[in-house]
């Protein structure tokens, strides 16, 4: 794996790496990924599951609860014309 890719991946992973670290990890990952290339020899399947065993979601009924003080919630919100204002995202 070249150092440029390591830096890119590190940025996505929110990791600050020193130049030495980039160099070390690039060598390690190159080594490791070469070994993983054995997977190219494995047959491709059509189907696969993300889980090794079936997963079942057990749901419960909604439990309705009243907010303790709706008035306070409204007082602390930023509103405009009866709508709640949220922070700008972009």
């Amino acid at each position: 794996m070249d150092e440029g890719t390591v830096r890119r991946v590190a940025k996505v992973s929110r990791l600050d790496l020193t130049d030495d670290e980039v160099s070390i990890y690039a060598a390690d990952l190159e080594d490791i990924l070469s070994a993983f290339a054995v997977l190219d020899e494995a047959p491709t399947g059509e189907d696969f599951d993300l889980d090794p065993v079936p997963v079942e979601d057990r749901l419960r009924d909604d439990e309705v609860m009243a907010y303790p003080d709706p008035g306070r919630l409204r007082r602390e919100m930023r509103t405009a014309d009866g709508w709640v204002r949220g922070p700008r995202l972009a």
Binding site: M1, T5, V6, V9, A10, V12, S13, R14, L15, D16, L17, E21, Y25, D28, L29, I32
Partner: peptide, 19 residues
């Protein structure tokens, strides 16, 4: 925070897994 708090192997695996 992550760079200070995570060890070398943890970083290696995060890089590998992200890639």
């Amino acid at each position: 925070v992550r760079s200070r708090g995570l060890g070398r192997e943890a970083k290696r695996r995060i890089l590998l897994g992200t890639f």
